[in-house]
């Protein structure tokens, strides 16, 4: 399957387009509904982080998305031109044992780590690149 690309402006109300784009790619590649949902969740959280942290707000730049499928693996690449923001530098929130310690900050990143098989980040003079990989469950070892 050839690589698919989409570019949207960095606004919260454009993130659903990215989600729909990724779900379509996942479903056409044969991922089941649950796996496609997990890809959507990870990409949604990643885009929200780009807008909030890399761009520091809405309408500060674009988000470019590419989906590539090969050998039972969906590779989602997100690029932005914002400030360096490495999601991997943010630790998972501690386990929630009571309402008092329920902290939602960092939860989106925890979702990305939990539902995707891998997540890698790089930054250069042009911005940030985040690569999320999801493998079909039948291909998991």
């Amino acid at each position: 399957m050839p690589e698919r690309r989409l570019i949207v402006s960095g606004r919260y109300d454009r993130v659903k387009e990215v989600c729909d784009f990724v779900v379509r790619a996942a479903e056409e590649a044969g991922f089941d509904e649950s796996e496609a949902f997990q890809c959507q969740l990870a990409v949604d959280e990643a885009c929200a982080n780009i807008i909030e942290h890399a761009y520091g707000g809405e309408d500060q730049g674009d988000i470019a998305v590419a989906c590539e499928v090969s050998d039972g693996e969906l590779r989602i690449t997100l690029r932005d031109s914002g400030l360096p923001f490495d999601p991997q530098s943010v630790p998972d929130p501690p386990p929630i044992t009571s309402l008092d310690d329920a902290r939602i900050g960092g939860l989106g990143l925890a979702f990305m780590r939990k539902v995707m098989n891998s997540m890698s980040y790089s930054s250069d003079g042009d911005g940030n690149t985040l690569v999320l990989i999801k493998r079909k469950s039948t291909h998991e070892t």
Binding site: E45, A48, L99, I104, L107
Partner: peptide, 16 residues
């Protein structure tokens, strides 16, 4: 049909 951590944040802050 769908909820992300942003929705959970609103629910947890209201619960508190």
């Amino acid at each position: 049909e769908y909820m992300s951590s942003a929705g959970l944040r609103a629910m947890v802050s209201t619960l508190k």
